[in-house]
Design a protein around this nucleic acid. Structure first.
Lengths: 114, 114
DNA sequence: CACTTACGTAAGGACCTTCTTACATGCCCG
DNA sequence: CGGGCATGTAAGAAGGTCCTTACGTAAGTG
């Protein structure tokens, strides 16, 4: 993702099944990088890099505990994303009845009136 | 995005400010590709490609009308994304009190990354 | 103090995005 | 039917992503 704004980082982080799965796993509580990596077929550095993406998007926090890094969810991380999605869904739904009818009878070849 | 599953496509499509802006603009009703492209500093083909991404993710629909393509929102497109986000947010929040206490008394002597 | 463990980071390869310009297609209008 | 308009698509450059292996570092262990 070339875009570096907060929302793009969050959505970009979510646009990967492995990272979504990591977030799901973190629901059950904090977990170290090694334990996490054991669940996947890719190398540990790969998981480490996914964690960096998630951390950069503000979705997780890594706390240092001796030589372990405990990863846990940063609950506010999804706030903006949820707000964006809900706002759009709500507004779309609001318009649907109206728009549906509008398009139905809009049938003719051209448009430009509205 | 190498991932081709539905959720990844949707989140990936949303991970771009231009595409999110296009979706916002479509809230006010259907619009043609040319009208849309006039709002951006990039070329019309670039917009056309963004639209292809949005369409591939099931977020919009393009209907052919003579030589115009009217783009409009596909309201069900955000369903899965919203469900995913809400489910995770809800479950995280559910655990927060518990987890908060747990971490509190777990008292890591030092922390801080990020 | 070596030695292992847990982890991050560097370097590099394969592939994907995201723009651009150039060109092809389909549609209407005189 | 020829010309112009709205649009998609091809081709290619520039830069990202996502994985790998190799190596570096900090913390506990014998």
């Amino acid at each position: 993702m070339p875009a570096t704004d907060e929302l793009s980082l969050v959505f970009g982080a979510l646009a990967d099944p492995t990272r979504r799965d990591i977030l799901s796993r973190l629901r059950t509580g904090p977990i170290t990088v090694g334990e996490l990596a054991a669940n996947y077929s890719m190398s540990r550095p790969a998981i480490s890099q996914h964690l960096a993406v998630l951390e950069g998007a503000g979705l997780i926090v890594r706390t240092v505990n001796a030589q372990w890094r405990e990863c846990r969810i940063r609950e506010a991380g999804l706030d903006d994303a949820q707000a964006w999605v809900e706002r759009h869904r709500a507004e779309w739904n609001e318009r649907l009845d109206f728009l549906g009818e509008h398009l139905m009878k809009h049938q003719p070849r051209r448009e430009g009136t509205r």
